[in-house]
Design a protein around this nucleic acid. Structure first.
Length: 250
DNA sequence: GCATTAACCACAG
DNA sequence: CTGTGGTTAATGC
């Protein structure tokens, strides 16, 4: 009997919480979203309503899979808040293709160019993603030139970035790639010279195409040489100039 | 040849 | 999940 009443109480509280969150979610209008992409900010009032009706927002905890390689893909995904990795499984090991920092599109190419995902995405930190109906997205591209322009612009930026990283990966040796990665995370992700490194050693290795052992070794070498200060995940860049030199010289 | 670089393996916190 | 040490293979001088 007592068990029952306590269950009922818990139930009531849960129902209340769900209703509360629904009430808040309903206020989640794309129109008033503070994380709009530059493309979406070119949409008209009417288009924003269309976007909203074909859009669902999902929360992801750190480590949760946002979408999976080889699965059917029918939504554009926009990463509203958080940090995610795009990674591709191969016979040998996972390779991290790219880190996406919100706000940014998380999945366009693999939804547009094929029916299934060519890569997976996993949340590196707690994140919120918006799943956007592919048909309304296509409609905006066909009807709204400024929207299309912004999408092409961001895809082009992504491609330039890919080319650059491809060349760097192939021509630099491990120390240079680690140095580049540290600078990248400092400048592009955390905007600080002292930061918590968001990836495990293994993930960093998968990102810069090396082994986790090499990552460990190079990091402790940098620490020993006073280039960085290393405390598990905490990293402080002490000699950025030298780090840049190492990055540039490979 | 010899040195350097880095992956792979194994093992220990 | 990390760090370290030994081993090995490839490459450059």
């Amino acid at each position: 009997m007592e068990l029952c009443t306590s269950f009922c109480d818990v139930d009531h509280i849960n129902v209340f919480l769900i209703l509360l969150s629904l009430a808040f979610m309903e206020k989640e209008h794309c129109k008033y979203c503070n994380f709009k992409s530059s493309a979406v900010s070119h949409l008209s009032e009417n288009e924003l309503n269309i976007l909203e009706s074909g859009c669902a927002q999902v929360n992801f905890k750190k480590g949760e899979i946002i979408f999976k390689q080889d699965a059917l893909s029918s939504n554009i995904i926009y990463l509203k808040t958080g940090l995610a990795k795009l990674h591709m499984a191969s016979k040998k090991r996972d390779q991290i293709i790219k880190i996406i920092k919100a706000p940014d599109f998380l999945r366009i190419s693999t939804t547009f160019a094929d029916r299934v995902n060519h890569y997976s995405s996993t949340a590196v930190e707690d994140s919120i993603a918006c799943f956007i109906d592919i048909n309304s997205f296509k409609e905006f591209i066909l009807k709204n030139g400024e929207f299309a322009y912004e999408i092409i612009y961001s895809l082009s930026r992504g491609e330039l970035d890919n080319f650059r990283r491809c060349v760097n990966r192939n021509q630099k040796q491990t120390v240079g790639r680690v140095a580049d990665a540290l600078i990248y995370f400092s400048e592009q992700i955390s905007y600080n010279e002292e930061f918590d490194f968001p990836l495990s050693r293994n993930d960093l290795a998968d990102l810069i195409c090396t082994s986790r052992e090499s990552v460990s070794r190079v990091l402790s070498e940098f620490d020993k040489d006073q280039i960085i200060e290393l405390d598990n995940k905490k990293i402080k860049i002490k000699n950025k100039h030298l780090l840049e030199q190492i990055g540039n010289n490979g």
